[in-house]
Design a binder for these strands. Structure first.
Lengths: 301, 301
DNA sequence: AACCGTAATTTGTCTAGGACAAAACAAGCA
DNA sequence: TGCTTGTTTTGTCCTAGACAAATTACGGTT
């Protein structure tokens, strides 16, 4: 059933590797080597697309394409275990409970997962739920995905269900708008929203007025939105997979189109890999966000 | 403050026009004509980026780039009014109430909008809320965006807030899994999710078991997910802006990676512009979805 | 006047290879 | 160990040509 072939645009869509990169790899490394159709255009077999996605996954982990392509096939299990940082920090004692939640996702048991999470939310309260459940769980799902024990669609399922929970929880918060107005969004190409939601939950709990604009806002539009909403803070999220090279330039451009008095926060695991910048405040953890909020309030008292 | 310039990648991100197209237009039409930096690379001023986005907007409406670029500036108000179909069908008598909701968004009054919508949901019930409020409202927001009276960020705000409402409503539905298992998602590059949520709400009301996977699933992953979840139906959404040319090919490829016995539904305003296909069932309205569900149930009784 | 098939045009995407800067790595030295 | 400098790796950008698919224009027919 997998006799379908992909043209270069389809491969770009499905792997996230640009056409330029695909052609360059073919020239440099001799992989992938698609066949050609009658017009001399590349036809990638599904098998190569799969391999490419696997390579992309490992690249997002910090590996380099030259090495990956050289390795034949045992790369899968071999390289997947070693990681840049030993991230598995001790997550208190309920590590086991988190594992249970992961198992429910892995079994595709939507209803049971939702129920378990609802219970947890009720038991812990929103703040601890975000910090002690959602954050580490997301971390672990990311790891599982990286090491191949979670499929892409399982990660999507987790993300979708968890998004719902958080949004629902946020909606039920009493809106006591005393704090700053915070505009939450992400730049185009950046579609991960979970981190943004976690921050929103924490900020809303602290009484900040959050304006969620979803993801993928063109830069000039972010500027307009900040002005229209008279935002005090513009909070952006960059995920692990976002090309770090682009971030400093983006922040600089954005700083130029934002009102002077609006603060710019850049958060998410994507910003841990870039250096300090004068254009934005870097938020690498959830606690950072709370600290930054407190700091803002001190300065505007 | 708008002295920032954009490189070609940034323009692609912000306008949705590919690098290839941007270079080709420069060659053919003489617009845009960016200046060059020290390395001979293109630097687009913000003003040209804005114009490009405007052109893109009109193109999605059915206009052709050659004409648009020839027109100097009065194109804005002039071309924007004429549309392919006179879509403003009569939406019963509460047209005025919808206009009120739109006004709240336009005024960026998050709290008031949420409250008004909550009330409406409580009053109408979920089914009528989806069909008589959310659907026409989304339609109108789309029109407002097309004719320029809604900014991008206002459309995003509407989308984000409405997504939350729908998800919240869906979450509170009793899960009586008697119907088919329906996997809801969209292909990569397609990020609009509101239509999917509306369908999910209606199907869930009818007792179908919905598995929401969010947007942007690679084709091969959709196949894996369908298998893993033993989905009876895979429902895809294509928005207005999705390039119609690609849809038939996508459906055909997808059909090849899906299990034989899984039905494939393709819905959204993006499919109204393509012809019939043997690969998928085309769903152009919300009623279509309900009809298709009933039909599926008859065939699998 | 409405319809239909063919020709011309418009438009997007693909191809090729070359160039270069930024990042990652390696090596040498304090 | 830590820092600086050179080398390799890697992605992105560039030009310029070709072609197919979609769209429009045109001429002939009913």
């Amino acid at each position: 059933m997998n006799t379908a072939t992909f043209n270069i645009a389809a491969v770009e869509r499905d792997t996230g590797l640009s056409k330029d990169v695909l052609r360059m790899w073919e020239r440099r490394y001799g992989f992938p080597v698609p066949s050609r159709d009658n017009n001399g255009e590349r036809c990638y077999p599904a098998e190569q697309v799969d391999r490419l996605r696997q390579i992309k996954r490992l690249m997002d982990l910090g590996h380099r394409p030259g090495k990956l392509i050289a390795t034949p096939a045992e790369e899968l299990g071999a390289l997947t275990s070693r990681r840049s940082k030993p991230v598995t920090m001790d997550i208190s004692a309920d590590d086991g409970e988190l594992a249970e939640l992961l198992t429910l996702i892995k079994q595709h048991d939507v209803a049971a997962y939702q129920q378990a999470m609802q219970q947890r939310l009720a038991r812990q309260g929103l703040q601890r739920f975000v910090q002690d459940t959602v954050a580490p769980l997301t971390q672990q799902v990311g790891e599982k995905w990286e090491d191949g024990s979670f499929e892409v669609f399982e990660e999507h399922l987790y993300t979708e269900l968890t998004k719902r929970l958080l949004r629902q929880a946020i909606a039920t918060l009493p809106g006591g708008p005393r704090g700053p107005r915070v505009l939450l969004t992400s730049v185009p190409e950046e579609q991960h929203v979970l981190g943004l939601l976690m921050v929103e939950a924490l900020l809303a709990l602290e009484g900040a007025e959050c304006i969620p604009l979803g993801t993928q806002m063109p830069l000039l539009e972010i500027g307009r939105a900040a002005e229209a909403h008279q935002a005090d803070i513009v909070a952006l999220s960059f995920s692990q997979a976002f090309p770090p090279r682009q971030i400093p330039g983006l922040l600089q451009q954005l700083r130029q189109v934002l009102p002077e008095n609006a603060a710019l926060w850049a958060g998410g695991s994507g910003v841990t890999r870039i250096g300090k910048t004068g254009d934005a405040e870097l938020i690498t953890t959830l606690d950072d966000a709370l600290r930054a909020l407190a700091s803002w309030r001190r300065q505007h008292a």
